[in-house]
């Protein structure tokens, strides 16, 4: 732990093109971009599946398949292909040969939790609530936007947080692709350093963890603001013990509580 402190407390380690700030910025950039792309793909897909109730089996299969894809294998394969493509096409900026595959790997990692939580959240909306919304004269799209998505919001945000955690932790392997940097560099290069090898490596791990926690808190805060107070789970731990058995079909709030 001393080594970690030595590494993190030295101001010189924080600045410069190989400094901590640069690595954090790189790491954050890849992670946030990947999360956004994953959300853009998975949210509408999950909403559609949840709203129509069709294709759930296919979605479960897709999510499991994506989960089973080894990130490291995917990264190495896509980078090899990416480099070949940029070599053959001088018009494409060379950097993209590394950049696009890396982001893609993280996107694939982020899709399953967002997808499954979105359709499960919408599927868990009480059918009576949905009926009532239709009975008030809402169209299918309105039911989705005004009723289902808001009610599913706690679960959707839980999915986003879960996706972000996995993306941030896995973004460390991008260090394998030398020029992409990120906090993984400290973990991979630290052990080779002549001075304080252990401190640099463990320091990198600590930074990743801190980044994950801060990001998680930020998404949670956005979620807190976005989720209707009527659906917020009561965070008091005492309430958990006597929680009645879960019925996913009609209690999304309880469902979300499991997630958080």
């Amino acid at each position: 732990m001393n080594g970690v402190w030595t590494f993190l407390s030295d101001g010189a380690n924080w600045v410069g093109p190989d400094g901590i700030w640069t690595r954090i910025a790189e790491h954050l950039q890849y992670s946030v971009l990947a999360l956004l792309i994953a959300a853009v793909i998975a949210l509408p897909l999950g909403a559609l599946i949840g709203h129509t109730g069709k294709g759930i089996t296919a979605a479960v299969g897709l999510a499991n398949l994506l989960r089973a894809l080894p990130s490291l294998g995917l990264l190495t394969l896509l980078v090899l292909w990416g480099l070949t493509i940029v070599q053959d096409n001088p018009d494409i900026p060379a950097r993209w040969g590394l950049y696009v595959p890396s982001i893609l790997v993280l996107v694939i990692l982020g899709i399953p939790p967002i997808l499954t939580n979105t359709y499960a959240g919408i599927g868990a909306v009480d059918p009576a609530v949905r009926d009532a919304a239709s009975g008030l004269g809402m169209t299918g799209g309105q039911v989705l936007r005004k009723v289902e998505l808001p009610v599913a919001a706690p679960l959707i945000f839980a999915g986003l947080r879960s996706a972000f955690l996995q993306i941030v932790a896995t973004a460390t392997i991008l260090a394998l692709v030398v020029t992409l940097g990120g906090l993984g560099r400290f973990i991979l290069d630290g052990p080779k350093s002549p001075v304080n090898p252990y401190g640099i490596m463990a320091g990198g791990a600590v930074l990743v963890a801190v980044l994950a926690i801060v990001g998680d808190r930020v998404i949670a805060a956005i979620g807190y603001a976005a989720i209707s107070p009527g659906l917020r789970s009561n965070g008091r731990p005492g309430n958990r013990r006597r929680r009645p058995a879960l019925t996913t079909r009609n209690d999304p709030a309880a469902l979300a509580e499991v997630q958080q």
Binding site: N117, D216, A245, T248
Partner: peptide
Amino acid sequence: RSAAAAELAEVVGPAEV
């Protein structure tokens, strides 16, 4: 109820902070 709950557990990703 547990069948529904099992469906739910598939949804649960890694634990969160």
